[in-house]
Deep mutational scan, measured.
Amino acid sequence: TEKQERAIEYIRRLGYSEEEARRILKKANGNPDLAKEIARRIG
């Protein structure tokens, strides 16, 4: 989804690889607090 793409872009800007960014997002899917934090940061 567009939100996922924005989140991946944001995480990659922090210096993670695409693969790492996707792994972090997968974790965020099972972790509402982390997901909220990422969403808050990407606006």
Rank of each mutant, 00 (worst) to 15 (best):
K26R: 13
E20R: 04
R41G: 11
R41W: 06
S17F: 02
D33C: 06
R13W: 13
T1S: 13
R12P: 01
K27E: 15
A21S: 05
L25T: 01
E37R: 14
A21V: 05
A7E: 04
R12Q: 14
E37W: 06
T1Y: 14
I8P: 02
L25W: 05
A39N: 02
L34D: 05
E5K: 14
R40P: 03
A35T: 02
Y10V: 12
K3H: 13
N31G: 02
I42W: 09
I24H: 01
E9H: 06
L25Q: 01
G30Q: 06
R22G: 04
R41L: 10
R12S: 06
A28N: 02
E9L: 06
R41Y: 06
T1P: 10
L14N: 01
N31K: 07
L34A: 08
R13K: 15
E37T: 11
D33N: 09
R13D: 15
Y10F: 09
I38F: 04
R12G: 05
A39E: 02
Y16G: 00
D33T: 11
R12F: 03
I24P: 00
G30T: 03
K27Q: 14
A35M: 04
K36T: 08
K36N: 04
I38Q: 04
E18L: 10
G30H: 06
A28M: 04
I38T: 04
K3F: 09
R23S: 13
T1N: 13
K36Y: 11
K26Y: 09
D33Y: 08
D33G: 09
L14G: 01
A35P: 01
R22Q: 09
R6E: 15
L25R: 00
A28V: 06
A7H: 03
E9N: 07
K26S: 11
K36R: 11
G15H: 02
Q4Y: 09
A21D: 00
K26L: 12
L14K: 03
Y10G: 06
L14W: 04
N31I: 07
Y10C: 09
K36D: 03
K3P: 11
I38P: 01
R22H: 10
I42R: 12
L14H: 03
L34N: 05
Y10S: 11
G30C: 05
D33W: 08
G15R: 01
A28Q: 02
R40M: 11
E18D: 11
L14Q: 04
R41H: 12
R12I: 15
L25S: 01
Q4G: 08
E9K: 07
G30F: 11
I11G: 00
R6K: 14
I11H: 00
A35E: 02
I42A: 12
R41K: 13
S17I: 02
G43H: 15
A7V: 11
G43F: 14
D33S: 10
R13Q: 15
E20D: 08
A39G: 04
E2L: 06
D33E: 14
T1E: 11
I8L: 14
K27S: 13
R40H: 14
N31Q: 07
E18W: 07
A7R: 02
K26T: 11
G30R: 04
T1F: 14
Y16C: 05
G30N: 09
K36H: 04
E9V: 05
E20K: 04
E5F: 08
A39S: 04
I42Q: 14
K27F: 14
R41N: 12
E2Y: 02
E37L: 09
K3C: 08
P32D: 05
L14R: 02
E18P: 06
P32M: 07
N29V: 05
E5N: 12
T1L: 14
L25D: 00
L14P: 00
A28H: 03
E5G: 07
E2W: 01
E19T: 10
Y10E: 15
E18N: 06
I11C: 04
K36S: 06
I8E: 04
K36M: 15
E19K: 09
A28D: 00
R41F: 06
K27Y: 15
R22K: 10
R6C: 13
P32F: 09
R12L: 12
Y16N: 02
A35G: 03
E20W: 06
E2P: 10
E19F: 10
I11R: 00
Y10N: 08
E5C: 12
A7W: 07
N31V: 06
R22V: 08
Y10Q: 12
L25C: 03
Y16I: 06
I24K: 00
G30L: 06
A39W: 01
Y10I: 13
G15T: 00
K3V: 13
G30I: 02
G30M: 10
K27I: 15
Q4L: 14
G30E: 04
E20A: 09
N29P: 01
R22E: 06
R23I: 13
Y10D: 14
L34Y: 07
K3R: 13
T1G: 10
R22C: 08
I11T: 00
I24T: 01
A35R: 02
E18H: 07
E19Y: 11
R23E: 15
S17D: 05
E20H: 06
A35S: 03
L25A: 02
R40W: 05
K27T: 13
K3Y: 08
R23Q: 14
I11Q: 00
R40L: 12
T1M: 12
E5A: 12
I38H: 04
I11V: 02
I38G: 02
A21P: 00
R6T: 10
E19N: 09
E9D: 14
T1I: 14
Y16F: 15
G15M: 01
E2V: 10
L14E: 02
Q4N: 09
R13T: 15
A35C: 05
A39Y: 01
Y16V: 03
G43M: 15
R6H: 12
R12N: 03
S17G: 04
R6V: 08
N31W: 06
Y16A: 02
A21T: 04
R22M: 09
R22L: 10
R40S: 10
K3L: 15
R23W: 14
K3E: 15
K26A: 14
E19R: 08
G43K: 15
E20P: 00
E9T: 05
E37V: 13
E9R: 09
R6P: 06
A21R: 00
R12A: 05
P32H: 06
N29D: 10
Q4M: 13
L14V: 02
E2F: 02
R12K: 15
E20F: 08
E18R: 06
R40K: 11
K36F: 10
Q4V: 14
E9M: 06
I24W: 03
E5Y: 08
K36C: 10
E20Q: 10
Y10L: 08
L14M: 11
N31P: 01
I8R: 03
L34V: 11
R22F: 08
I42N: 12
R6A: 15
R41D: 08
R41P: 04
R22D: 05
R40A: 09
E9Y: 04
E19D: 12
G15W: 00
I38N: 04
I8W: 05
L34T: 07
N29Q: 11
D33R: 10
G15Y: 00
E19H: 09
L14C: 07
Y16D: 00
R40G: 08
T1R: 13
S17N: 08
E18Q: 07
A7N: 03
R22S: 05
R6D: 15
A21W: 00
R12C: 10
L34C: 07
G30S: 05
T1V: 12
R22Y: 12
G30Y: 12
R13S: 15
I11M: 11
L14S: 02
E5T: 09
R41V: 10
I38E: 05
R41M: 11
G43D: 12
L34E: 06
E19M: 10
E2N: 11
A35Q: 02
E18K: 06
K3S: 14
N29T: 04
Y16H: 05
Q4W: 13
R22T: 06
E37I: 13
R23A: 14
R41C: 12
A7D: 06
E18G: 05
R6S: 14
E37S: 11
I24V: 04
L34G: 04
I38L: 10
T1K: 14
K27W: 15
I8A: 03
E19S: 11
I42V: 11
R41A: 12
G15S: 01
A21Y: 01
R40I: 13
R23G: 11
S17R: 03
G15A: 01
G43V: 15
A39M: 03
L25N: 01
I11F: 06
R6W: 09
A7I: 11
K36Q: 09
K36L: 14
L14D: 00
E37A: 14
S17T: 14
G43I: 15
K3N: 13
Y10H: 12
I42M: 15
K27D: 13
A39I: 05
A35N: 01
R23N: 13
I11E: 00
K26N: 12
I42E: 13
E19P: 07
L25F: 05
A7Q: 03
R6Y: 08
I8M: 07
R23V: 11
I38M: 09
L25K: 00
K27P: 01
L34I: 11
A28W: 03
E2Q: 11
L25I: 07
